[in-house]
Amino acid sequence: MNVELPLLAFVLGAALATAVLRDVLGAIIAFATYSLGIAVVWVVLQAPDVGLTEAAVGAGVTTVLFLLTIAKTVRPSGERVIERLDWPALGVSVLLVGVLLTTLGALPEIGSPDTAVLTSEVTTYYLENAYSEVEVKNAVTAVLAAYRGFDTLGEAVVVYSAGVGLLVVLGKEVFA
């Protein structure tokens, strides 16, 4: 059975719910659902590493952090469930999506054998030599931790800087 269309409808529905729900708690739960849908999209697109990250970070950790953040907010009064639409903002968003959609035609088909990624010499080199050169079976990890380890050091330092930056902003020396 074709899984893409129901999945797309699920993700779009969750994204829409995140945008229009008036209750912040509801919006956060909808956002976690959206992340879960996106994680499944990554798996469908054969990118399990990214899917795992999306599921753990998007659906898991950020949801908990958001829930902690809204602890000081209050529920909006009134019976309305859906936020009143902001037409100028909606217009700008639709315009932006329209501009981005124009690039859609330039993308290759999903699973197409002649995409730039699959035909590139670099990819072929990694797939052929990763195991003999760095002794790991997951080519993604081989690129991440060996061939382009310096980039990964940069990524790890970005995470570190996020923590340190938070401490600097709060003017504290420890996370408390």
Partner: peptide, 28 residues
């Protein structure tokens, strides 16, 4: 090479786990 990559993964994990725990504590 394999042990080195696993060690690097472990230390990345330590960085990520402690940063997220720190964010959790700081937000709370």
């Amino acid at each position: 090479t394999k042990y080195g990559i696993e060690a690097v993964e472990l230390f990345i994990g330590v960085i990520v786990a402690s940063t997220i725990t720190g964010l959790f504590f700081a937000i709370d």
